[in-house]
Structures are given as structure tokens and as C-alpha cells.
């Protein structure tokens, strides 16, 4: 089979792919990541490249490339990021729907996020809330609420205290009985027996930070993410360590959870969700107990999550300033409805 993409180092072939569309570049990304290879001194040869492929190549860090058929848009992207490019032939544009989605003036990260979702390379599941009604003590808190969140998207829900933000998250979790409507996560409808078997796809970090005095260490809290699964203790320890290292809280492993600061607790809780391999993260007022430094750290951590696993993330918060740091969609919850 003909190779669509080849990467060489000092004339020696180190990687090739014969997949179609943008998949060779995603495969290459995995290859470079898993072997911790820098693309600086590698040479890439691709059959065809439009703007989308050009952005991915730039993001991978290649400085020298040869493209057999290149679009003018791709050439502009390469020259914008100072990539040394040669080609066999040039066309005004590549006939592909993806090309229409890329303007050319975005950042490589933004294009990569969008393309990766199109390629289905996100761990997140879609979330759909349809005509949701919830009454608590006879009072309608949520009324015909609709919300759609795509795979790997991140959304923020703002609203005043008592607007029903936490109620919405608890309904998505399946803890609160629903008066009307339905909630769908991936292929499962919340509340069904199938859902019950798969509900650990949801990771939940709640607002009030667990106030009891149950003696538990930070690593034991992270392990809770695996409490619903059967696995050998060595595997549990391994996964716990990886999750804690990822969220930079491994040094807290033996510390009592209750003695940690608000920011440290958030990192431990996000590590718990990572350990659980949650596909949808529900964060309830995550900045409530954080100082500005801890808020910045949480922002960086969530961005890293999106850049890697890309779970679907739903954050409810009334911290407008913190929300404005992100690029996700922002909804407002008012009078029991999403505006």
C-alpha cells in the first residue's frame, strides 16, 4: 500500500502511515508523544496538505516539510509559522469540508482542538438534557430545561445562588428524581439499569469539599475513583500514582485530605476523576474556596486535561472573571431554564 505520510531522521525512515484524511498526522502525534521525540530535526513528506494539515504539522513542531500537493492556504500557514516548505504542485484550495472550517488566522491549538473532535479523538461523551423538569418540595426548580454538550466540549453554566445549578448537576449524576424530560450521556439514558452499570463515566467534584472528619489520606481519596471497579491492588496503586502525578499532587499522597488547602483538595479531586477515567466531568463551583493563585492553577490543570484526554466538562460557577479565562461556551441558568 502506498505511504501517505513519511517521516525521516537523517535520511532514515522513522515513521510512516497509509491512513487517510488527517489520521496520519494524529498517528504521528501519538508516535512522537509515546517515544518522547522532538520534531525539530525530523523531515516530513506528505501527499497532500490543506490549511488543517498545515496547522497540525506546525503544532507538531516540524521545521522542514515536503508536500506533493499543497493549497495556497496551507502555504500561508507554513510561512506564518516559519516552516521551511517545498512542494510539487500548488492549488488554490483543497476540496474538503474540513478546509472550509479553518480560516487560517486561528492558533494551532484551537485548530487542533476542533480537528481532534471531528476525528473522534476525544475521551468525552456527549451530554443531552431535554425538557428537564425537577421539583423539590413541590417547587419547580428546573423547568423544561434543554442543554446539549458535544463530545469533548467544555461548557460553563452561570447563575445566581439558588438558580438550580447544583440541582442540574445532581440530576445529571442521577441522584435527584426527574419530574419530566430525559438526560442522555453517550448511549445511556440516566436512570436506566444500563446507565447504573456505567455511571462511573461521570466524575463529580462538589462544591462543599467534604466536611466530615473521616480519616483519609489524599491518595486514598484518589483511589475512591476506582472503588466501583474490581482490580488488583498493584494496578490501583499504579493508576493512583499516575493520576496524582498528572495533577501535580503526588507529593501530597500521604497527607491527610482534611489538612490540605482548597487548591490542593481540588487537584486531588480532579486526580480522583482521572483515576476513574471519567468521560464527563461535572465541577460544581470549583473556585469557591480558592485564592487567585489556586484559581490560576486550576485553569492550567483543566486546560491540560482538554489538551490530553479531552473529557466533556460542565462547570457551574458564578465566578465570571475565572470563567472568562476559558474559551468554552457560557450559558446562564435563570428561572429554571438555560438562556
Amino acid at each position: 500500500m502506498e505511504k501517505s505520510l513519511i517521516v525521516t531522521a537523517n535520511g532514515q525512515e522513522t515513521f510512516f502511515s497509509n491512513s487517510k484524511w488527517l489520521y496520519p498526522l494524529f498517528e504521528l502525534e501519538d508516535f512522537l508523544k509515546s517515544n518522547t521525540i522532538s520534531a525539530d530535526n525530523l523531515f516530513l513528506t506528505d501527499k497532500i496538505a490543506g490549511k488543517a494539515a498545515a496547522f497540525l504539522i506546525v503544532r507538531l513542531g516540524f521545521k522542514k516539510v515536503h508536500i506533493e500537493l499543497i493549497s495556497e492556504g496551507a502555504l500561508a500557514v507554513f510561512s506564518r509559522f516559519l516552516v521551511d516548505v517545498t512542494f510539487d504542485s500548488k492549488v488554490p484550495k483543497i476540496q474538503c469540508a474540513t478546509e472550509e472550517l479553518v480560516k487560517g488566522n486561528e492558533s494551532p491549538d484551537a485548530v487542533w482542538q476542533m480537528l481532534r473532535r471531528r476525528a473522534g479523538r476525544v475521551s468525552g461523551l456527549s451530554l443531552s438534557v431535554e425538557s428537564l423538569g425537577i421539583a423539590i418540595d413541590g417547587v419547580l426548580v428546573l423547568d423544561s430545561l434543554d442543554l446539549k454538550v458535544g463530545k469533548g466540549d467544555h461548557v460553563f453554566i452561570k447563575g445566581d445562588n439558588g438558580a438550580g445549578k447544583t440541582t442540574l448537576l445532581k440530576a445529571i449524576l442521577g441522584i435527584l428524581p426527574i419530574s419530566s424530560g430525559r438526560i442522555q450521556i453517550g448511549d445511556w439514558q440516566v436512570g436506566t439499569s444500563e446507565w447504573e452499570r456505567n455511571r462511573s463515566v461521570l466524575g463529580y467534584v462538589h462544591q462543599d469539599m467534604v466536611k466530615n472528619n473521616f480519616p483519609i489520606s489524599a491518595s486514598e481519596v484518589v483511589e475512591i475513583g476506582l472503588a466501583g471497579k474490581r482490580m488488583p491492588s498493584a494496578e490501583i496503586q499504579h493508576r493512583t500514582e499516575i493520576a496524582m502525578r498528572r495533577t501535580r499532587c503526588f507529593h501530597l499522597a500521604t497527607r491527610s485530605y482534611h489538612e490540605l488547602s482548597g487548591g490542593e483538595k481540588q487537584r486531588v479531586n480532579i486526580a480522583r476523576c482521572l483515576c476513574q477515567e471519567a468521560k464527563v466531568l461535572l465541577l460544581d463551583e470549583p473556585t469557591s474556596f480558592l485564592d487567585s493563585k489556586a484559581k490560576d492553577e486550576l485553569f492550567i490543570l483543566l486546560n491540560e486535561l482538554w489538551a490530553n484526554e479531552a473529557p466533556t466538562i460542565v462547570v457551574v460557577s458564578h465566578d465570571d472573571q475565572w470563567i472568562s479565562l476559558f474559551s468554552g461556551k457560557v450559558f446562564e441558568l435563570s428561572n429554571g431554564k438555560i438562556c
Partner: peptide, 20 residues
Amino acid sequence: YRQLKAVFFDTTIAYSSGVN
């Protein structure tokens, strides 16, 4: 043992982790 620990820590978190 692991499920008990999860429930004693927080029932909502235990539930979302798949603990019965």
C-alpha cells in the same frame, strides 16, 4: 473495604464512582 471507605468519605462521590 474499598467501597466502605468511599461511602464513609462521601456518599455522592461514592455513587459517582460507581459504588452501590
